[in-house]
């Protein structure tokens, strides 16, 4: 029983991380259907942003989110303008463009850091709470709280605000949205930028628990796509749950089946869901084609 609970807690904490790094992609892929393979690199840039703020200004990574988030928002503006907007209607070209971007970003960071691994320290790391045998460190707890809080806020934003409503309208039917007076291009742009800012935020929040390396985004990208698809494209609550599913499956498969196969299990679940229900567990059936409507 103790072991079972322990594995579950490990899974939930891992799920928090997966959920957090996927929130940005949930907007970018889940909502506006941009196949952004460079999403992991946006998280990576957020991590290095937190490192820069820490090493140059001595800022705690949690404080540095105040700088990292706006910076990544601006970076998102540039990326969207240069590489995404011209390819709005062509998903296979988006794959190439964002894969090119991924290569550029990874290697620019590699050139600057010369392959040296960095880490970011925070006072929170020394705190931990213990429930029986199970210890939860402060850094992991913050991630879990953050992913839940951001999900709630994002949900309210999409449901209640005018901007959120226009984002949802554009996803469902571009043409109709345009006829209702929504500026479709601006909506796409803002959605991508928010997605980029949230990736940066995720990067800063997880920076204390990883050793920073230029290729670290590769660890997150497939997981992020899995979380977004599993949870149901664009569904915020779904993505939160999707992160938990991936994390818990990985923890249990790692402990009870084989540590080497821990990821293969959720890869397979992901493939199955893609094939059977591409809109995910909580998405509308047929919704994967929405947003492609104007292109054909």
């Amino acid at each position: 029983m103790e072991t079972l609970l322990n594995v579950l807690v490990v899974g939930i904490l891992l799920g928090g991380i997966y959920g957090l790094v996927s929130i940005g992609l949930n907007l970018i892929f889940g909502v506006i259907r941009i196949v952004n393979f460079a999403q992991g690199e946006l998280v990576m840039l957020g991590m290095y942003g937190a490192f820069l703020a820490y090493s140059m200004l001595g800022l705690d990574p949690y404080v540095s989110t105040l700088i990292v988030m706006p910076a990544m928002f601006l970076f998102g503006v540039i990326v969207q303008r240069v590489a995404i907007q011209p390819l709005q209607a062509e998903s296979s070209m988006q794959i190439f463009a964002t894969f090119g971007l991924l290569t550029v970003l990874q290697n620019v960071v590699l050139v600057f850091t010369r392959g040296e691994g960095y880490s970011v320290a925070t006072k929170v790391a020394s705190f931990s709470i213990a429930i029986g045998e199970i210890r939860i460190t402060g850094t992991h707890l913050i991630i879990l709280i953050a992913v839940t809080a951001i999900s709630v806020l994002l949900h309210l934003f999409l449901q209640r605000t005018l901007m959120g409503k226009s984002i949802r309208a554009v996803t469902q039917d571009r043409q109709a949205a345009r006829l209702m007076g929504i500026n479709v291009e601006r909506t796409f742009m803002v959605t991508f930028d928010i997605g980029s800012a949230l990736a940066g935020l995720a990067g800063a929040l997880i920076a204390p628990i990883y050793t920073l390396s230029p290729g670290i985004g590769d660890n997150f990208i497939l997981a992020a796509f899995a979380v977004v698809v599993l949870g149901g494209l664009g569904s915020v609550a779904g993505a939160w749950a999707g992160g938990m599913i991936v994390g818990i499956v990985e923890a249990f498969a790692g402990y009870y089946i084989d540590p080497e196969l821990k990821q293969a299990i959720w890869f397979l679940i992901f493939l199955l869901v893609l094939v059977i229900r591409p809109t995910g567990l909580s998405g509308q059936v047929g919704a994967e084609e929405v947003g492609f409507r104007e292109q054909s």
Binding site: A97, T103, V104, Q106
Partner: peptide, 14 residues
């Protein structure tokens, strides 16, 4: 500089 050639290749791809 390791990685510099990949910066160029990624740029070409983009």
């Amino acid at each position: 500089l390791p990685g510099l050639h990949l910066v160029v290749m990624g740029g070409v791809m983009l």
